[in-house]
């Protein structure tokens, strides 16, 4: 076990070092693609960290991504970059905690609808504020950050997310979430504060999403609410995590990589019918792979005698 863990750690570190050299290839197209891949990998993994064990389907990814991006649009030129990121993370965490406390008592369907509505609500709030208070709609982002910088920051965040997920899976919080995922009534009778556990994880996951938005913001030189709060991101992340399998920490990345490549291709070739194709892909995934690629791997590697029951994703 510990030898396996050590091996995994060394492997991950080696991959990280190798990936850190991508910007050195000097190919702008590959760098842009790599940024997209990392962006969706982090978003989908963060999505799975909460939704995997709790089975709550969140469409709020865009809301948090947008909060991060807009924080940069507003503060990016005024404050030092690390401070901007810190403020973005704090804002995301606060919004998530409030949303979590007020919605995680809702049952599944209401939660989905609420999180979708939340994105729109925050977007409209930003529009209202910009039009009435700051009297601008759309801002230029002039920060001294290169594409390579964005890539390295995302790579660092990717490493941090996997480390965090791994630690949570081994913590009492992770165990609590597994029990909640199995049977919430039993969980409460075991003395688990289920609301706290769910809000805590929702907040962690949302903070990561907010950071992705903040890190990505300098990629656009011009940001307006419809760019920062693009609902498409929520759906794409959902599809990726489900394709990969949200019940495992390493599941969502298996969906994020192929689908990012596919979406990149499709949106370039079929810009008008892209959303329809997206919908069809979504249906196919739900019908053919209810437990995602990760579930498929488990099925293939399961010995006839015992079932694979350990869930790494907390």
């Amino acid at each position: 076990m510990s030898a396996k863990t050590a091996g995994l750690g060394v492997g991950a570190l080696a991959a990280l070092v190798l990936l850190a050299f991508v910007p050195r290839l000097g190919n702008a197209y590959y760098l842009a693609l790599a940024i997209s891949l990392l962006q969706y990998t982090v978003l989908a993994t963060a999505w799975g960290m909460f939704s995997g064990p709790t089975r709550y389907v969140s469409l709020a990814t865009t809301a948090f991504f947008g909060v991060g991006a807009y924080t940069v649009a507003v503060l990016g030129e005024i404050l030092p970059w690390p401070l901007v990121l810190l403020i973005a993370a704090a804002l995301g965490a606060i919004v998530a905690a409030i949303v979590g406390l007020s919605t995680l008592r809702l049952s599944g369907v209401y939660f989905v609808i609420f999180t979708f509505g939340l994105t729109e609500l925050i977007r409209q709030l930003v529009v209202w504020f910009e039009v009435n208070k700051s009297r601008v709609l759309g801002r230029y982002v002039f920060v001294d950050i290169t594409q390579a910088d964005i890539y390295w920051q995302l790579l660092g965040l990717t490493a941090a997310v996997f480390l965090l997920g791994w630690l949570i899976a081994r913590s009492r919080l992770g165990f609590a979430l597994r029990v909640i995922g199995e049977d919430e009534t039993v969980a409460t009778h075991c003395g688990i504060n289920t609301t706290f556990a769910k809000v805590a994880l929702f907040t962690i996951s949302a903070t990561v999403m907010t950071l992705v938005g903040a890190i990505m913001a300098p990629r656009w030189t011009y940001i307006e609410p419809s760019i920062a709060f693009n609902s498409m991101i929520s759906f794409q992340v959902l599809i990726m995590a489900l394709l990969g399998g949200a019940h495992r920490l390493w599941g969502p990345v298996l969906g994020a990589v192929p689908l990012t490549l596919l979406f990149e291709l499709l949106s370039a070739r079929f810009p008008n019918t892209f959303t329809i194709i997206l919908g069809c892909i979504f249906l196919l995934i739900v019908y053919m792979l209810p437990r995602g690629v990760a579930g498929l791997f488990e099925k293939l590697s399961t010995t006839p005698g015992g079932k694979t029951t350990e869930r790494v994703a907390a």
Binding site: R172, F175, A176, R178, V179, G181, E182, D183, T185, V186, A187, H189, C190, G191, I192, T309, R311
Partner: peptide, 26 residues
């Protein structure tokens, strides 16, 4: 502590983990 009329165990976990759930959060 209680048991349920329709037995409720944590099917995705082994016996040891099931019992651990009962004491880990006290």
């Amino acid at each position: 502590a209680r048991t349920f009329q329709l037995v409720r165990v944590l099917d995705g976990m082994d016996c040891r983990e099931n019992i651990k759930a009962g004491l880990a959060f006290q």
